[in-house]
């Protein structure tokens, strides 16, 4: 999990098949990837692995401590904590991917339009983003959820709106620099029409920094959702969800600490995985980290 730019990386080329390869060779990358894979598998197939139905009540075992029967203990309704932690990974993973994807889509669209066309469009988009930046992020997310209503998709959308200006800024900056590049002049001279220029030339060259930002944003989005859920603005109960489990478990913290410990462990592990993986992806994709030959062509 090295955040410091350690030894110079071997010469990297930006081709998809190599990305995975490079990540696996990166010390943090392999670790992050492994934990991520574990959580994704849990999210997809967790219901099959989980010992109990996450919403089934065991009235004979209310708030029972971890035992052979319930490894992680049970909550005040006798629901199995292990099964609920596993089921909660579905929400955590889904929100992280969903919100970052939406933020990326909104941000890249706005950023590319604003950077490429400039002028009035650019000014209007910039000013409206300045207004969004006038809100603390969590506050904006809270109020957006209040407007949109609760639920997995709405919470993801709210988080996406909050984080989209970051994507827009980075996409706009790249689009601006690509706009004046000679290969774009060449394409215009060749008579290539504007939509094709946007798709063929601008978009592919805007994406690398955007993907790095997306990778780094996964943990932030996850955290934002966990906070929303903790504050009671996530998915509706009885769906198991780490944030709301923590919020509920707080009431029983003195008598049943396992109710807060296990969701916390899961949450922190996933966030750590996202963080480490994000750093690894940046190390691999960021041109300033790769060798000099590719630096001038990638920027």
């Amino acid at each position: 999990m090295s955040t410091a730019p350690s030894a110079p990386l071997p010469k990297t080329r930006l081709r998809r098949p190599y990305l995975l390869d490079q990540l696996l060779r990166h010390k943090g990358g392999a670790f992050g990837l492994a934990i991520m894979a574990l959580f994704i598998l849990l999210a997809l197939f967790g219901r099959m692995v989980a010992p109990y139905d996450p919403n089934a009540n065991d009235y004979l075992n209310l708030l029972s401590a971890p035992s052979a029967q319930h490894w992680f203990g049970t909550d005040e309704l006798g629901r199995d904590t292990l099964s609920r932690v596993i089921d909660g990974s579905r929400i955590a993973v889904a929100v992280a991917f969903l919100s970052v994807s939406i933020a990326m889509a909104i941000g890249v669209l706005i950023g590319v339009i604003s950077g490429y066309f400039g002028g009035m469009v650019d000014s209007v988009l910039n000013r409206s983003q300045d207004v969004l930046f006038a809100f603390p992020t969590l506050l904006l997310a809270i109020i957006l959820v209040a407007v949109l209503g609760p639920g997995l998709f709405n919470a993801s959308l709210a988080i996406a709106i909050v984080y989209s200006p970051r994507f827009a800024r980075i996409a706009r900056a790249s689009a601006l620099s690509i706009k004046t590049s000679e290969y774009l002049d060449a394409a215009r001279l060749a008579g290539v029409n504007t939509p094709t220029i946007l798709v063929r030339h601008i978009l592919p060259n805007v994406m690398p920094p955007v993907i790095v930002l997306a990778a780094l944003s996964m943990s932030t989005a996850q955290l934002a959702y966990a906070s929303l859920s903790f504050l009671g603005l996530g998915v509706s109960p009885p769906q198991a969800d780490w944030g709301s489990m923590l919020s509920k478990g707080r009431d029983f913290i003195t008598i049943a600490p396992w109710l807060v410990i296990w969701p916390t462990v899961a949450l922190v592990m996933l966030m750590l995985a996202f963080n480490v993986l994000g750093d690894a992806i940046r190390d691999v994709l960021d041109p300033s980290h790769s060798s000099s030959k590719s630096t001038d062509t990638l920027t």
């Binding site: 590049s181 000679e182 290969y183 002049d185 060449a186 394409a187 030339h201 592919p204 060259n205 990638l298």
Partner: peptide, 13 residues
């Protein structure tokens, strides 16, 4: 047109 900077005049991707 043929441009000044040979490395910048073709889409790197």
């Amino acid at each position: 047109m043929v441009f000044q900077n040979p490395s910048g005049s073709m889409n790197p991707r």
